[in-house]
Design a binder for these strands. Structure first.
Lengths: 271, 271
DNA sequence: CTAATAGTGTCTATTAGACAGTATGTT
DNA sequence: AACATACTGTCTAATAGACACTATTAG
């Protein structure tokens, strides 16, 4: 037996259990604008995710989330921060741990466990310093009979994947996700994307995280569009304004130019 | 360059990044009864957590959560299942991933990242097969000015720890936890305990997870006691009954023996 | 003028909070 | 009878949903 903790630590066999690799994957969400042809209409808001095209094996030529190995000498939560900095060149981004995926065969190379994080940014604040292989995809989601279809689309590529949601226990809201169709997304990143979408949707109701994806000044119509695209349903104007009334403050700035009544711009209330 | 994925995998250097150890910690919650002396009064319900006394270094003689290393050939979520089976000898327990803690120095032995899980059980269903070093502690929590004090108590030991909650971003409900007082709990397990308590408290409102801690038959008074102890506040009878009305079904069983009007027993509605 | 969005008033339906009152078994 | 809990009725307050209405601009 050991005499003290120091004594124990000196003699500890660090290789008693086989070690494994840990990576982190980052789901970066933002809002895009889809320019309309009708001069009267508002630009359609789109909900977007940043994907990277893999140029090496495994899953060469498939799309995946930005991510990388967690270094042995860095705190877990510093890994996504470092990668975000490298990828988008901005810091102080909203970042939240999502879930840790650890199935044995999720990576063909070897046993790799991955902790996923969700980041929210306003992509207009980015300079064009984004990594060349990265591009924004617009997300469309539909659900039918517990089968979710997510379609990702941009100028370069367009594809979908399907996931079946199976309730884990009758007492809860937690689902097991099972990929039933996917041929463009690498690893188990489909699962991360869906987890993140659902998390964001839930948190929209009881937190202020949307504002991490909004520009400093916005109209209430624009904000409502963002809510609607994420929640996947139309909201009634008066109800919406009641809900967000104490989260925003009116400014003197007026947005004109649409073929309709101009709108005051608001900003996130700093209290 | 490689000709194919197979070719790549054959030549992949698995040790390019330094590997680390992954463990899992399990927060097992249950409800205990505190027998009262007044024959009229109901037994007080207590909210309990299972802790294990460490008999080896590091943190020898301190209390910690049951847990262990994730094996290289087992899925992440199978590790807590295996450990729960070993620890309590029952399976099919409610289990939910909580959070992955990965600060560099959270374990003095070496770099160990740990994914924590929360389990809910009805401890009356356990035979006395619990590990000898394990024992149930009753939880008392108080909060003052973002400083949470948690007191753990049973026949063997009684102690508290304090954690400061610091809001991470103004847009969210997420806190950074900072241990400001603790001398009986090993590792960063204080943080896991607090995370779990808060998660459970939140989920109480919008899921049915309480029923994982209830016996098959219970009175509405008992159920209300459990809500109150977890939420940390008194509830009004009519409001409470409205909320849970469609979650439970009345049975013909009547509980008598208290010095007061007998009560029908209910059970979790199976739909 | 028209199409489109901005913004408000108000009615109704639903839900939450509060309190009072009745019911009943054990000592 | 007294106490403690079981259980219900009902009033009020707060919130959510729905719809109608007015305001204002570019073309």
């Amino acid at each position: 037996m050991y005499k003290s903790e120091e004594d124990f630590l000196r003699n500890y066999n660090k290789d008693e259990y086989e070690k494994l690799s840990l990576t982190t994957d980052i789901l970066i969400f933002s809002i895009s604008d889809n320019k309309t042809t009708n001069y009267r209409k508002l630009n359609e808001k789109l909900f977007s995710v940043l994907l990277v095209k893999r140029n090496t094996y495994p899953f060469k030529d498939k799309w995946c989330l930005p991510g990388g190995f967690v270094r042995i000498d860095e705190n877990l939560e510093d890994a996504p921060k470092r990668i975000l900095k490298d990828e988008t060149n901005i810091k102080d981004i909203y970042l939240e741990q999502l879930y840790t995926f650890g199935d044995i065969n999720r990576d063909p190379r070897m046993r790799i466990v991955s902790t996923s994080y969700m980041a929210l940014i306003d992509k207009n604040r980015l300079n064009d310093t984004i990594n060349n292989d990265a591009s924004w995809f617009n997300i469309k989601k539909s659900e039918d009979n517990n089968i979710v279809t997510i379609t990702l689309e941009n100028d370069i590529d367009c594809f979908s994947f399907k996931i079946k949601k199976i309730l884990k226990e009758k007492t809860t809201d937690r689902y097991k996700f099972e990929i039933i169709e996917n041929n463009k997304i690498a690893f188990d990143h489909c699962l991360v994307i869906l987890s993140g979408i659902e998390r964001l949707k839930n948190k929209l109701e009881y937190t202020d995280i949307v504002f991490n994806m909004m520009p400093e000044y916005f109209t209430l119509g624009e904000l409502q569009q963002v809510y609607e695209i994420i929640l996947g349903k139309k909201l009634l104007d008066p109800a919406f304004r009641r809900i967000i009334a104490n989260k925003v403050e009116k400014t003197e700035i007026i947005k004109t130019g649409g073929g309709h009544r101009p709108s005051y711009m608001y900003r996130y209330k700093n209290i």
